[in-house]
């Protein structure tokens, strides 16, 4: 059943949220990513416009991806951007300005909120994780 938030979600929001919904499988296929994030336990919320996605990470492995709305659910940190910006970010070879999360935060197109210590302490891991939907043919902002 569509949630109240879903009913308001635009087509592009739904399209981008669907791509992030596969983060668990994409991360599971990348053992090296889990190695690099092995000290990270975090509940990351990715906001695609009005759609919240909860990414549960334990010892660097994505153990669940759930779609909101969430009621009184805390997160370690939240990364939010409008769906249009995320869609451009997820292109295999994004245009300048959309190629990196920090480029987007500098331009005001994305925001990171919450406890930033685990975010900064695992920055490359986080950036690589959210870039996984670009696919193997895209190198994007991945290190």
């Amino acid at each position: 059943m569509a949630s109240p938030v879903d009913s308001k979600a635009s087509a592009v929001e739904a399209r981008v949220a669907d791509r992030f919904a596969h983060l668990g499988e994409l991360a599971a296929a990348d053992d090296d990513l889990a190695r690099r994030g092995r000290f990270l336990d975090a509940d990351v919320e990715i906001r695609v416009g009005s759609i919240p996605l909860g990414i549960a990470i334990r010892a660097g492995r994505v153990v669940s991806v759930t779609r909101g709305p969430f009621l009184l659910k805390s997160s370690t940190f939240t990364i939010r951007a409008e769906a249009d910006a995320w869609e451009r970010f997820l292109e295999p070879f994004p245009v300048p300005g959309f190629h990196d999360l920090m480029a987007m935060t500098k331009a005001g197109m994305a925001r990171v909120e919450g406890n930033l210590t685990p975010f900064m302490g695992n920055l490359q891991y986080i950036k690589d994780l959210i870039a996984l939907p670009r696919g193997k043919n895209g190198s994007g902002g991945r290190a």
């Binding site: 070879f93 190629h99 990196d100 920090m102 900064m120 302490g121 920055l123 490359q124």
Partner: peptide, 27 residues
């Protein structure tokens, strides 16, 4: 002390390179 300096410095600047640049050179 609670964030690895080398790792965070590299992670911050990693996105300042073009996505087309060869992986070996970026690393």
């Amino acid at each position: 002390p609670d964030v690895h300096g080398g790792e965070v410095c590299a992670a911050l600047v990693s996105g300042m390179m073009a996505p087309h640049s060869p992986a070996v050179s970026r690393h």
